[in-house]
Simulated assay, not measured.
Amino acid sequence: MDIRFEKSLKLKEKIKDENKLGFGTYFTDYMFLMDYDEKNGWNDPRIVPYGNIEIQPSAMGLHYGQTIFEGLKAYKNDGKVYLFRADENFKRMNESNDRLCIPPVDEEFMMEALKKLIDIERDWVPDSKEASLYIRPFIIATEPKLGVHPSDSYLLMIILSPSGPYYKDGLAPMKIYVEDKYVRAVKGGIGTAKAGGNYAASLKSQIEAEENGYFQVLWIDGVDRKYVEEVGSMNIFFVTDDGIITPELNGSILSGITRKSIIELLKAEGQKVVEKKIAIDEIMDLHKKGKLLEVFGTGTAAVVSPVGELFYNGEKVVINNGEIGKVSQHLYDELTDIQWARKKGPEGWQIEV
């Protein structure tokens, strides 16, 4: 398919101080759109000026939650722009599509479309260190009909948002609240899909955690109510005296691309990494015995987030004296150097636009 381009009559003024960009606040001049209907399949791919879209109030995505999204970034180094493992994002997009009964997209075509959009918007990719261009592909059901059934029509979009450094004052450990009341997802549900409903289910707990001085929520499983799963926007890792452990992908945990990359980097360095079921009581016991050395989260936005404190069942657990551990710092430095192409990464990780 040819990608149609509609030129904007007036371009936006870019933010001069990139340290004030924040995250997900400003948006670029253009966006990518593509429609789906049963007769034509995915059709009319186009890059148009960023702006409002029109859907009917009865659009099924508004009522029944048939919507999925992805998140990735573009990075600039020495005037060149790079994507990081974007093919993995479109692969995961199709896994989410399958779970929510949304027609699959052509992954190779989506890569072509993304590269074209980024090429047009390359001046929006921040130049300052650790700032990047956040990329949000998503799909919503648009058929104007009330009734619980997969939609016959969809809209796929990609919007772009220049974002400043996640850590303005350096890599700071965060405080995490272990949730033992609410449930985000269960095996057999949509926890493995990057679906809007998963994040809606997490909001109540997130607000309560923030009110108590905690930055994120660590979820435990919804059946046995004892096994660690993931943090609100990140996967979780525990550094012990016997290697590094992380919850296995069990059907209710999102398969993070940063998670996958961290595991591959660690194994390439000869580190012991074990994916398994981890009881929260096991983590508390490791801490009491002095065997829990570090905890960190991984995700697109922050890359690697060290954890300085866990709160569970009325008990505060301070990790590594609330300081950044060597493993967390090393992995952050290693992966960001690859993402910004300051050093060469494994084959296929860096995609120049």
Rank of each mutant, 00 (worst) to 15 (best):
Glu121Pro: 04
Glu121Ala: 04
Arg122Ile: 09
Arg122Asp: 10
Asp123Ala: 06
Asp123Thr: 10
Trp124Asp: 08
Trp124Met: 10
Trp124Val: 10
Val125Met: 10
Val125Gly: 04
Val125Tyr: 07
Pro126Asn: 13
Pro126Asp: 09
Pro126Leu: 08
Pro126Thr: 07
Pro126Lys: 13
Asp127Lys: 15
Asp127Tyr: 15
Asp127Asn: 15
Ser128His: 11
Lys129Tyr: 15
Lys129Asn: 14
Glu130Ile: 11
Glu130Trp: 12
Glu130Lys: 14
Glu130Ala: 13
Ala131Arg: 03
Ala131Trp: 11
Ser132His: 12
Ser132Gln: 11
Ser132Gly: 13
Ser132Asp: 12
Leu133Ala: 14
Leu133Asn: 08
Leu133Pro: 05
Leu133His: 07
Ile135Gln: 01
Arg136Trp: 05
Arg136His: 12
Arg136Leu: 11
Pro137Arg: 05
Pro137Leu: 01
Pro137Ile: 02
Phe138Tyr: 12
Phe138Ser: 12
Ile139Asn: 03
Ile139Thr: 04
Ile140Pro: 02
Ala141Gly: 02
Thr142Gly: 05
Thr142His: 02
Glu143Leu: 08
Glu143Gln: 08
Lys145Cys: 05
Leu146Ser: 04
Val148Met: 10
Val148Asn: 10
His149Ala: 14
His149Arg: 15
Pro150Lys: 09
Pro150Ile: 10
Ser151Met: 04
Ser151Asp: 04
Ser151Pro: 01
Asp152Arg: 14
Asp152Asn: 14
Ser153Lys: 06
Ser153Trp: 00
Leu155Cys: 01
Leu155Gly: 04
Leu156Arg: 01
Leu156Val: 03
Leu156Gly: 01
Met157Ser: 05
Ile158Trp: 08
Ile159Gly: 03
Ile159Ala: 09
Ile159Gln: 05
Leu160Cys: 11
Ser161Glu: 13
Pro162Met: 14
Pro162Glu: 14
Pro162Trp: 15
Pro162Leu: 13
Pro162Cys: 12
Pro162Ala: 12
Pro162Ile: 12
Ser163Cys: 15
Ser163Asn: 14
Ser163Ala: 15
Pro165Tyr: 13
Pro165Gln: 06
Tyr167Ala: 05
Asp169Lys: 15
Gly170Asp: 12
Gly170Ile: 05
Gly170Leu: 08
Leu171Lys: 04
Leu171His: 05
Leu171Asn: 05
Leu171Arg: 01
Leu171Cys: 04
Leu171Glu: 06
Leu171Tyr: 01
Ala172Glu: 15
Ala172Ile: 14
Pro173Tyr: 00
Pro173Leu: 00
Pro173Ser: 01
Met174Ala: 00
Lys175Thr: 01
Lys175Met: 02
Lys175Asp: 07
Tyr177Asn: 05
Tyr177His: 04
Glu179Cys: 09
Glu179Pro: 04
Glu179Lys: 00
Asp180Phe: 00
Asp180Arg: 06
Asp180Leu: 14
Asp180Ala: 14
Lys181Cys: 10
Lys181Pro: 10
Tyr182Ala: 00
Tyr182His: 15
Tyr182Gly: 11
Tyr182Pro: 04
Arg184Lys: 09
Val186Glu: 14
Lys187Asn: 11
Gly188Glu: 10
Gly188Asn: 09
Gly188Thr: 11
Gly189Asp: 13
Gly189Leu: 12
Ile190His: 06
Ile190Glu: 03
Ile190Gln: 09
Gly191His: 08
Thr192Leu: 10
Ala193Cys: 12
Lys194Ser: 02
Lys194Val: 06
Lys194Ile: 08
Lys194Leu: 06
Ala195Leu: 03
Gly196Phe: 07
Gly196Gln: 09
Gly197Val: 12
Gly197Ser: 11
Gly197Cys: 08
Asn198Gln: 03
